[in-house]
């Protein structure tokens, strides 16, 4: 008797995934209710918030293809020059698309 990936068990697995994800969404806030928010905690949180994004992006820049790298470099450059997110993001995407069409 094999487990079908059709209806019931697939649904059960999706529900398990949903619960695990929900735990991650609520767990951080819940854990913090036990932590007094002092100066040191604020400093940690402040440094960590930018670091989440950097840690997410680093492997994308290193392990990605040249198109990905050029896209990120373009976005960073336009953002530094114009300080406007939309042109920076659009520029990155266009560069990746052009590079990959070549």
């Amino acid at each position: 008797m094999s487990i079908e990936t059709g209806s019931p068990s697939a649904l059960a697995i999706i529900l398990i995934m949903a619960v695990v994800t929900l735990v991650t969404r609520l767990g951080g806030v819940f854990a913090m209710t036990f932590v007094p928010i002092g100066y040191r905690v604020k400093r940690f949180i402040h440094a960590m918030s930018g670091s989440v994004l950097v840690a997410l992006l680093a492997p994308l820049a290193i392990a990605g293809d040249n198109g990905a790298r050029l896209a990120l470099m373009t976005t960073a450059a336009i953002m530094l020059a114009l300080k406007k997110p939309l042109p920076a993001i659009a520029g990155g995407i266009v560069v990746a698309a052009l590079f990959r069409q070549m």
Binding site: L53, A71, T75, G92, I93, A96, R100
Partner: peptide, 17 residues
């Protein structure tokens, strides 16, 4: 091929920068 996989990466990088 349209660079669309980079949307979120570029968006988050723009937030960082």
């Amino acid at each position: 091929s349209l660079g669309l996989d980079m949307v979120m990466g570029c968006f988050l990088l723009a937030m960082v920068v």
